[in-house]
């Protein structure tokens, strides 16, 4: 069992094979210990997330990597507090953000936001409200998260649009999401997300719907913005190589469990679990174009 000592606090992490965690230098803002998410009646429940434990510190860049069915999206939704009030059963020994206990039930049907946590979804087209202009959507967020006079709001809106590289303010502010190109929509989504002043930004499959070149730009922008805002970034993705390039720490999920927590810089040498090593090897890269056969991954069962 490895213990992590941070500012005098001992945070025990249950034994996971291949655990090699860099000591957290920053204050932990998100703590998850023994998080389990299941659906269905008790005698027939299906667990999407099983016994997951980790922490995120302020300013950390963490990636959760897994394939379809690994439970990574469910985990992200649970961390953003969006499973409260749904038919999902969320249990944990600890699950808190900034001191707020996330396990508390929520009565209303409308999901409740956790102050300081913002989540962005895969597709900007479905994330943005189709019937309102970009200006109004950004304006609403700016007004809620910054104390401003009404007439200063348009200025801040322009500021944020400029920050994400959109210069054609007048037209974009009056445009609706479907009138913009895919790349612009992505940037607008990021502008709105950062304008909400998050301390933790959760990005669910930020690049899966994008072409490789646009994906790079978006990830560059996202990491820049979060660094500037001193916000932590949690990205959920199936693209291991992309996460290697942009995250400091990687958690690998398989069938609902975290099977590996490792620093991104050391993943090739330090990865212990077979699944992680298999994933690393079997992603096709440009360097392996002339091999006769690609390495494949046989299905790996998660421990216990």
């Amino acid at each position: 069992m490895s213990d992590v000592i941070s500012r005098g606090q001992i945070q025990p992490i249950p034994a996971i094979q291949g655990l090699l965690l860099q000591p957290a230098q920053t204050t932990p803002i998100l703590l998850a210990d023994g998080l389990t998410v299941s659906y269905g009646p008790p005698e027939n429940s299906v667990a999407a997330v099983r016994d997951v434990s980790f922490t995120i510190g302020a300013g950390d860049r963490v990636a959760i990597v897994g394939e379809s069915g690994s439970g990574k999206t469910t985990l992200a939704l649970a961390l953003a507090g969006f499973l409260r009030g749904t038919s999902a059963h969320v249990t944990a020994r600890t699950l808190s953000f900034d001191g707020i206990d996330l396990r508390a039930a929520v009565g209303s049907r409308l999901p409740r936001k956790i102050p300081g946590v913002t989540m962005v979804f895969q597709d900007a087209m479905t994330s943005l409200d189709p019937l309102w202009t970009v200006g109004s959507q950004l304006g609403v967020v700016v007004r809620k998260n910054e104390t401003l006079r009404r007439r200063d709001v348009p200025l801040r809106v322009r500021h944020w649009l400029g920050r994400v590289g959109l210069m054609d303010f007048d037209r974009i502010v009056r445009a609706r999401p479907y009138e913009l190109s895919g790349g612009m929509r992505q940037r607008v989504m990021l502008a709105i997300a950062i304008a909400s002043r998050p301390r933790l930004l959760i990005a669910d499959e930020p690049t899966s719907a994008l072409d490789a070149s646009v994906a790079r730009e978006v990830m560059d922008l996202m990491t820049e913005l979060t660094e500037e805002a001193q916000a932590a970034l949690l990205m959920v993705s199936h693209d291991l190589h992309m996460c290697q390039g942009y995250a400091d720490r990687i958690l690998v999920m398989l069938q609902g469990r975290v099977v590996e927590q490792v620093a991104a810089a050391q993943i090739e040498t330090a990865a212990r679990h077979d699944y992680t090593r298999g994933l690393l090897r079997c992603v096709p890269t440009l360097d392996c174009f002339d091999v006769p056969l690609l390495p494949t991954l046989c299905s790996v069962a998660a421990p216990g």
Binding site: A80, P111, K113, V117, T126, L128, D129, N145
Partner: peptide, 10 residues
């Protein structure tokens, strides 16, 4: 997702 994103951004 449009609703969740709205809520998520406050």
């Amino acid at each position: 997702p449009a609703t969740l994103f709205r809520i998520s951004t406050g």
